[in-house]
């Protein structure tokens, strides 16, 4: 079975310079915003904003835009494919939020014992849960589509 996860550095060339600046600015702004909320309303409310999907808005929009641009270059209508690409990103984010939960839980359990250990183990938990969830979902989808592929082709109507 071929490796299901690939690295494609050419994707970086699809991005425009201002898109990287937008993401940097949004990331910085989200971090400052979380800090401001924490200092104004306390750590408990501020903690909620560590999972605010501010960056996701930019990522999904850029993915849709790149897909539309790629299809236009191939003289295809790309709007629907762009939406579906952004939807796939959102599906990945559902799994990612499970791993974010694992990160927060491990950090919560360990931070009062060791800060470096809390960051290290929480990051490992994030990677482990994210990869496992993605592989389980992939296996589930492969298993679900297998009977359809093995069934005989439908006869063509005259």
């Amino acid at each position: 079975m071929s490796a299901p996860i690939r690295v494609s550095l050419s994707s970086l060339r699809e991005g425009r310079w201002y898109e990287y600046i937008i993401r940097f600015a949004l990331g910085g702004a989200a971090t400052v915003f979380a800090g401001l909320i924490s200092s104004r309303y306390g750590a408990s409310v501020g903690g909620l904003f560590l999972a605010l999907p501010a960056i996701f808005c930019a990522s999904a929009t850029l993915i849709e835009k790149h897909e539309i641009r790629r299809n236009r270059e191939a003289e295809l209508r790309g709007e629907r494919r762009g939406q579906m690409a952004a939807a796939l990103d959102a599906a990945g984010a559902v799994l990612g939020s499970g791993s974010m939960f694992a990160f927060a839980m491990v950090f919560w359990l360990l931070v009062e014992r060791t800060l470096v250990g809390a960051f290290a183990v929480a990051s490992l938990a994030w990677v482990a849960v994210a990869m496992s969830a993605w592989f389980v979902r992939r296996q589930f989808r492969v298993a679900r589509s297998a009977p359809r592929r093995s069934s005989p082709p439908m006869p063509r109507l005259p």
């Binding site: 924490s38 999972a51 927060a104 839980m105 950090f107 919560w108």
Partner: peptide, 9 residues
């Protein structure tokens, strides 16, 4: 903060 982050997730 991490406790609340679980809810945010």
């Amino acid at each position: 903060q991490a406790g609340s982050m679980m809810i945010g997730a």
